[in-house]
Design a protein around this nucleic acid. Structure first.
Lengths: 298, 298
DNA sequence: ACGCTCCATACGCGCAGAGATATCACACCC
DNA sequence: GGGTGTGATATCTCTGCGCGTATGGAGCGT
C-alpha cells in the first residue's frame, strides 16, 4: 500500500459539495467560507489529476471522475467513522472481543454464571471461550492468545497474576446403595479399599493431584478403577457402580438419581478456583471482565 | 456526517505498525525516522481516546481498541485507493458510465455497430442506453441525464452541438405484389392514392414530418392508413397489405419475404442522423465516445 | 446596461504538525 | 553491571495548508 495522498477532510468537503452542487451552500454546511472550499476541491482535483466537478452557471455538476470517486469517498468516510466508534467502544470496554480459557471442570460451576453476568453488562463484547487445562492456559496467557484464564489451583508464574474466585470443599461421590451413603459425613480413610473413578490427569493435572493428595493425607493411595474426562461422566460411572469418587463440591449440580454426595472428613481440604490474567493488564475489556467475574463470586 | 478527525496517513502508519509490531521496522517501511512515527501513533491514540498498542519489551501488541480499528482502517485506505484509481480511470476516459439516448429508428442502423466498437475500445465503460425521441433527448442533454443523443434531423438548440453521423435517402416500402414493385425506381407521386403505414408522430416527430414533407413536395397529402411505433412493424404491416410506406434506407435491413424496397424519385430527399452533445463538453468519456462514433460512420 | 449570482483568484495570517537529531528511560541478557 | 535494543521525550525547523477578507470575472436575467 502506497502512502495515502488524499486527506479525509477534503473527501468530506467533496461529498458535501457533491450533495449540494453549490459551493456557497456546501461551504455553509461545512462551516467555512466559500474560497477555502474552492481551494480544497482544487487541491483534491490536482491530486486526482482530473476535474471532479464541472462549473456551470447556477451551480456545479459532477464529472464522470467525480461520479466514480463519490461512492468510494462516502464508504471511506463511513469506514473511518465506524472504525473510530468501534475502537472507542472497545477502548471503553464496551465492545470488542475477549478470549477466555477455562478448565473443563468449571463448565459446571461458575463459568455459566459469569458469562451470563458479563453478557448482560457488556452485550457488545464477544466472548470467545476455549476449554484448556492449566499449563496451556498459562502458555496462552503469556502468548496472548487468551486474555483471562479460569483454572483450579492458582499457578505462581512470573508475569501473571491470579486471584481466587471460589474455594470449595471436596465431597465424596457414592452410589446410593453404598454403605457409607447412609452417613452424613464420610471419613476419607473409609474409602481406602474402594475403586476410584477420577478425572484423568491429562484432563486437568492439578485437580487430579489434589484429590490423590487428599487420599494420601488420609493414609492410602487411591486405587483408580476408571478414568473419565468430565465430571458428568464421573458421576454417571459412580451411579453405574464402577466405584466411588472425591470431587469438588460443585459436582452436586450433577443431579443423578443413583448418586449421593457426602461431606468428607477431614473437611479442611479445599480446591481453589482462580482467575488468571497478565500482570499489569490494562485492557478495559479484561479489566471489566475481571470486575464482573469478581462480583459473581458466591 | 461529522467532520473527519483522523488523518489517512496516520491510519496508514497505524496499519503498518500493526503489521510490523515494531516501531523501528515500521518507520523504515514508512520511510521516516522512528520518533515521528511515535508521534503519529500518539496523536492517533489521542484522537481515538484510548491506546491502540501496548508497548512491551521487544515490541508492541495491539490493544482491543487497536484490534477494532485495524480492519476499518484497512478498508478505508482501500476504499480511498480504489476510488482514486477509479476516478483517474474515469478522468482518463477509460472507465465509468456514459448515458446515451437514441431514436428508436436507429436501433436498426448505426447504434449496434457504434456500441460494439466503443465497447471494444473501452471495455471498462458502462454504456447505458435509453430510447428517446428528439425532444426528450434535447431536454435530457440539457438536464444532464444523458451525455450523448443520437437522433434524426439535428435540432438547432443553443448549448448543444450536433454533427451528422449518417445521411441516408428514403426508399419506398411496398408489398411484393404491388404494381410499383416491378419498377426499379418509384416516383413519389405514384403513391398519392395509396394508404400509408407510418411511424406515429409521437414516436419520432421529426422523421414523421420529414416523410410527410416528401409527399407534400410531390404534390399530395399522404393518407395515413395505419400507425406503428417501430420500423419492423411498419414493414410487417406493409407485407400484410395494409398500405405502403416511405422510410429511411436502413429499413432494408428488415428482410421480409413479402416486402420490396425501391428507390424513390426525386432522390434528393435524405434524412440525416445526428449525434448531439452539450457544447463545450470536456468529459473524456463523452469525447472518446464521440470519436469512436465518428469512426463508425460508413 | 446594469446588477445579481456564483465561483475563482490573490494575499496574508497563523498554526498544526511532520520531519530530523539528540537524548533519555527501561527492560533484558550475558 | 555494562551492553543492547526498544520506545518515549525534548527541541527545533520548516512548510503545508486551512482559513479569512477582498477582489475579479463570467454568465444570466431584467
Amino acid at each position: 500500500m502506497e502512502r495515502p495522498q488524499l486527506a479525509l477532510h477534503q473527501l468530506h468537503a467533496f461529498t458535501v459539495l457533491a450533495e449540494e452542487l453549490h459551493f456557497g451552500r456546501a461551504a455553509v454546511r461545512l462551516g467555512i467560507a466559500q474560497p477555502p472550499l474552492s481551494q480544497q476541491i482544487r487541491r483534491l482535483e490536482e491530486k486526482v489529476g482530473h476535474p471532479l466537478f464541472e462549473r456551470r452557471p447556477g451551480g456545479v455538476v459532477l464529472t464522470s471522475a467525480g461520479r466514480e470517486l463519490l461512492p468510494a469517498a462516502r464508504r471511506a468516510l463511513g469506514e473511518v467513522a465506524d472504525g473510530l466508534e468501534a475502537a472507542r467502544r472497545a477502548g471503553g470496554g464496551e465492545a470488542g472481543l475477549i478470549r477466555v480459557g477455562f478448565a473443563a471442570s468449571l463448565a459446571l460451576t461458575i463459568l455459566p454464571g459469569m458469562l451470563r453476568a458479563y453478557r448482560e453488562r457488556h452485550p457488545a463484547v464477544e466472548v470467545r471461550i476455549s476449554e484448556m487445562t492449566t499449563a496451556p492456559q498459562v502458555a496462552a496467557l503469556l502468548g496472548r492468545s487468551i486474555d483471562v484464564g479460569l483454572l483450579r489451583e492458582p499457578p505462581d508464574v512470573p508475569g501473571l497474576v491470579a486471584e481466587a474466585v471460589l474455594s470449595e470443599p471436596f465431597v465424596a461421590v457414592l452410589p446410593v446403595g453404598h454403605d457409607l451413603a447412609g452417613q452424613r459425613v464420610v471419613p476419607v480413610a473409609a474409602l481406602a479399599a474402594e475403586p476410584f473413578v477420577l478425572l484423568g490427569p491429562e484432563a486437568g493435572p492439578t485437580v487430579h493431584e489434589r484429590i490423590v493428595g487428599v487420599c494420601r493425607a488420609a493414609g492410602f493411595e487411591p486405587r483408580i478403577g476408571q478414568h473419565a474426562v468430565e465430571w458428568q461422566t464421573v458421576c454417571a460411572l459412580v451411579e453405574a457402580g464402577l466405584g466411588v469418587s472425591i470431587a469438588p463440591a460443585s459436582v452436586r449440580r450433577v443431579r443423578l438419581k443413583g448418586v449421593a454426595y457426602r461431606r468428607i472428613e477431614p473437611a479442611d481440604a479445599r480446591t481453589v478456583v482462580a482467575m488468571c490474567r497478565r500482570e499489569g493488564e490494562t485492557d478495559p475489556l479484561v479489566v471489566r471482565f475481571v470486575e464482573v467475574a469478581r462480583a459473581c463470586m458466591p
